[in-house]
Simulated scan of single mutants.
Amino acid sequence: MTTTTTPATLNPAIVGQAEKHHAAILNRALAGTTLDEHQWIVLNQALAAAEPVERAAYTARIAAMTQWNPADVVTALDALLAGGLLATTPDGLVEPTETGTTLAGRIRAESGAIVAAAYGAVAPEDLAVAARVLATVTARMAQELARA
C-alpha cells in the first residue's frame, strides 16, 4: 500500500510539478485545436485585456509576464492573426475575433472544470497563503532576472 505524504515545505520541485500538471491539463484542452501553449496565452491575455491592444506594448507585456523571447510572442501573435482568432483593427490595434472568443471559451470550460476541482480540494485560506507566497517568490526572481 502506497501512502502519500504532504511535503514539509514549498520548494522548486513542488512548484515545477504543479506547473507541469497545469500545462498537461491545458495541452489536453488544446488537443484538436490549432493552438499551442504560447498561442493560448497570447489569445487568453488579449481576451483578458477587454479592449483592443497596441501590438508592440502587448508583445512586450506578454514577453515580460512569461519570460519568453519577444520573437516567440510575435510568432504566436502572427499565428493567431493568420488563423483568424485575433484581428487588427483599422487603427492598428489587436483584438480577439468572435471565433477566437468562442474557442477560448470552449478551452476554458474544459480545462477550468479540472482546475476548479483540484483547487476546490484546498481550503480558501490556504489558497490565499499559497498565492501570496508564489507572488513573492516570483517577484524576487523577477528582480534578479532584471539585474542581468
Score class of each variant (00 low, 15 high):
T3K: 11
T4Q: 08
T5E: 10
T5W: 05
T5H: 08
N11H: 13
A13C: 02
A13T: 13
I14T: 11
I14H: 12
V15N: 03
A18N: 08
E19Q: 15
E19G: 11
E19L: 15
H21A: 10
H22K: 14
A23Y: 10
A23C: 07
A24S: 13
L26E: 01
R28K: 13
A29G: 06
L30H: 05
G32V: 06
G32D: 08
D36T: 03
D36Y: 07
N44R: 07
Q45T: 09
A46T: 04
A46G: 06
A46F: 02
L47G: 03
A48Y: 02
A48G: 03
A48C: 01
A49Q: 02
E51W: 04
P52W: 01
V53P: 04
V53A: 05
E54F: 00
E54W: 00
A56C: 01
A60H: 06
R61H: 11
R61G: 08
A64R: 09
A71P: 03
T75I: 12
A79H: 06
L80N: 05
L80P: 01
A82G: 11
A82N: 11
L86D: 02
A87H: 11
T88R: 12
T88Q: 14
T89P: 04
P90N: 08
D91Q: 12
G92C: 02
T97E: 07
T101I: 05
T101Y: 04
T102M: 08
L103A: 05
G105E: 07
I107K: 04
I107E: 04
R108C: 13
R108Q: 15
A109S: 12
E110K: 14
G112I: 09
I114K: 11
I114F: 04
I114G: 01
A116C: 04
A117G: 01
A117W: 01
A118P: 00
Y119Q: 11
G120M: 09
G120V: 09
A121G: 06
A123N: 06
A123P: 08
P124L: 08
P124M: 07
L127G: 00
V129H: 09
V129S: 07
A130L: 14
V133K: 12
V137S: 12
T138F: 05
M141F: 09
Q143I: 00
Q143M: 05
E144Q: 11
A148V: 14
